[in-house]
Amino acid sequence: MGRPASGEDAFDRFYGATAPAIRAYILGHCSDRDAADDLFQSTYIRFLRSRMASQPDAPEARAYLYRIASSVIADHGRELQRRRRLQTVEAPPPKTRDPTSTLAESLALREALRELSRRERQLLWLLYAEGFSHKEVAKIMNLSRGSVRVLAFRVRKKLARSIAERGPDSEEVRA
């Protein structure tokens, strides 16, 4: 794309600052690593095609990137559902897991996180991994600010209860 070298530098800086978080975000919603890699690439390709590509230093660029990633993940989820409906007899694809994440699988938090819905995990990530404000999260997730606040409160409570209920396993987390 015919952007000047300085534009490429700006994108490279933006990419360096956001790529690990975006990849982790996508992997949190998609257990198939190959598919996650495709979604990761699609996210940045769509970003580069957007008007925001010329101003990656803009403060709203990060939130915009997350909006793209969320939309890409949602599209992928719908596609998987459609395929599952069409191939009801076919066995589900084998899950390739991140080897480092398996180390932490025994942790109560990870187990509790897995029990959450896609939307709930998305909300937690945007709030606690990215530190977005309720207003920004509302914009990314197409919700009202009030809904974000209520949902965040409920999810935190749910998570706390889930961790506490794990009994001996949660001792590991508490220690």
Binding site: P20, Q41, Y44, A129
Partner: peptide, 30 residues
């Protein structure tokens, strides 16, 4: 819980730092 989440997510991001493809590759793909 919020502290645990921050720590857990920070760890997940750190794990990905060495696994993301270079920006040049993404630009080429685009």
């Amino acid at each position: 819980v919020a502290d645990m989440l921050r720590a857990e997510f920070a760890r997940e991001i750190e794990v990905q730092c060495s696994r993301v493809p270079g920006a040049a590759l993404i630009r080429l793909l685009a």
